[in-house]
Amino acid sequence: MTSPKSKAGSTGQGFNVGHFILLLVIVVVCVFPFYWMVTTSFKEQGAILSSTPQIIFRPTLGNYTTAFQKFDIGASLINSLIVALSTTAISLILGAPAAYAIARFEFKGKRDLWFWFISNRMISPIVVALPFFLIARQFHLLDTQLVLILIYLTFNVPIVVWICADQFRNIPKELDEAATLEGYNSFAIFWRIALPLAAPGIAVSAIFSFIFSWNELLYALVLTRTNAKTAPVVATSFLSGYELPWGQIMATGTLVALPVIIFSIIVSRQLVRGLTMGAIK
């Protein structure tokens, strides 16, 4: 494969204890809070509030039944899934060609265009929430999945452009030239040659699109009511200023976080090669 400079495997060094321990520490630190959330979701409130943490306890499924019955987390998970998958797909369809153009073509104002893409991510949702609300009401889009999908594009297309542009740039130019000689037009080159080679980058930008749209809270809070409520909105419905039923909160938290974690783990192999990010100077 021409996939450049990917590192050959181990050079056959032996077992290194220090290295092992450090890696283990990283794994533990990353996983522990998540582990703690999951175990808490199986505890009764009494066990959670005890001042010496209960490592061994009688697990209960009660928190999950409440999460499904009272908060209808099932419906909101489906909403989130629809919104996140659609946004991811559309972001890729729009972003990957744009990234390719930025990586491969020369034109005036390219750098500014790249920067404009990126700067779409810097806009604070707090201030555009009101205009989005007004316009959504105007077009009768309040409380629909469509409005969330459209808005999420504004911060996911930039990510796709960013990650993919770098991937396309790493593909040797000679390949394009060879293909041109064989009579490929630029669209065919993009589709048949560049895209397959940039697959890791596409995968990684898909992960991040998915993560960012799945986790978005502020727009979802303002623009949804009941029908299009997403999972993070449900996760915050406990901020009633009143009680904190930790078991139920953590059960909901687990249910909200689990799909995106599973999705990410499935594609995490691509993270190694796909996550090079640069800038267009």
Partner: peptide, 19 residues
Amino acid sequence: YEIVPYESTREKEVLDFSA
């Protein structure tokens, strides 16, 4: 009825009423 956390109730209502 829509169940909303207290923290965002006023925000939702004011947005709705003013618009």
